[in-house]
């Protein structure tokens, strides 16, 4: 497990953003004909996961899942093809953007809020059953942290000392409901003592802070000390889904956050301030990421849609 440098994390963040931007292009054209949830603005959290996880660790994500998949190492081409509803997709076009499954990498997602945690708990139990030393990361939003499974899973993980890391992306909003109006405590990390868990709240726009805190959370779980809750604060720069009118937030609030607290801009500034790289090098890096993603998008767009005659396949793996 090598720990990527800040510059490498920045490159990953650039790739993540350009991936999300490429996916957005499929919405107006109806190539992505359902809801698409973009994680633009939340790149520092996924990039902070890099380097802490083993291949046999599990990650179970949510409806806003693309960046966690990329962080886990899921093939970006197969992912984009799935998001674009192609037969070449990760799930042959049967899952779509909210339902990504990569069995080998123990990566899966769910479109049901809060349903990621029980699945992650199962992976954590499997790790203990098999004595593998693996951990399981269950991702949720701040909204998802209010569903009952959060309590059930953390209680079990605490009672049985299971290696479960609950990663909460607190982007302040659950569709139109602000965090402050939905949640009894000022933070989510402070729930940790109720479950005998490790808990920390971290600035999720600061990729170095996330990196350190995520590594700590994973180490805690891997050492057999039980669950960890890592709450990473961030902000959703796009609507809940592409096409969301987003009338519940002031437009200037969004604009101001983007101008002042874009994790990509913040990381770039840190790199410049520390003299790690110059403007030109970072510009070239961004251009290269965009070009690579544009190429990927172009190639995926040429792939075929699944054949209608296959629509009833896979209901039962044993056949029908």
């Amino acid at each position: 497990m090598s720990t990527p440098t800040l510059l490498e994390r920045y490159r990953a963040m650039l790739e993540m953003r350009s991936f999300e931007e490429a996916c957005q292009q499929g919405v107006p054209t109806r190539e992505v004909h359902g809801e698409l949830h973009s994680a633009i603005g939340q790149e520092a959290i996924a990039a902070g996961m890099l380097g802490s996880l083993r291949e046999d660790d599990a990650v179970v994500s949510t409806h806003r899942n693309h960046l966690h998949a990329l962080a886990k190492g899921v093939d970006p081409r197969a992912m984009m093809a799935e998001i674009f509803e192609k037969s070449t997709g990760l799930c042959g076009g049967f899952g779509g953007h909210m339902h990504l499954f990569d069995k080998r990498l123990r990566f899966s997602t769910t479109g049901i809020v809060g349903a990621s945690l029980p699945v992650a708990l199962g992976h954590a139990y499997a790790a203990v059953l098999g004595g593998t030393g693996a951990v399981a990361v269950g991702v949720t939003g701040d909204g998802g942290a209010n569903i009952g499974s959060f309590h059930e899973c953390l209680n079990i993980a605490g009672a049985w000392k299971l290696p479960l890391v609950v990663l909460i992306e607190n982007n302040e909003w659950a569709i139109s409901v602000p965090f402050s109006e939905s949640t009894a405590t000022p933070t989510l990390a402070e729930r940790a003592p109720a479950y005998g868990a490790w808990g920390k709240r971290v600035d999720g726009l600061d990729v170095e802070a996330v990196t350190e805190a995520f590594a700590e959370a994973v180490a805690h779980a891997r050492a057999g000390h039980g669950p960890a809750i890592l709450e990473a604060t961030c902000y959703r720069f796009r609507g809940h889904y592409e096409g969301d009118l987003d009338l519940y937030r002031k437009a200037d609030e969004k604009a101001q956050r983007l101008a002042e607290r874009d994790p990509l801009a913040l990381t770039r500034q840190t790199l410049l301030d520390r003299g790690v790289a110059g403007e030109a090098e970072l510009d070239a890096m961004a251009a290269a990421a965009s070009a690579r993603t544009a190429e990927l998008l172009e190639s995926v767009r040429r792939d075929p849609s699944p054949a209608p005659a296959t629509a009833h396949d896979h209901v039962f793996v044993s056949g029908r």
Binding site: C91, G92, F94, G95, S108, H314, V315
Partner: peptide, 8 residues
């Protein structure tokens, strides 16, 4: 099983 295109 279905959503994964028979892969899981």
């Amino acid at each position: 099983p279905y959503m994964s295109g028979g892969r899981v």
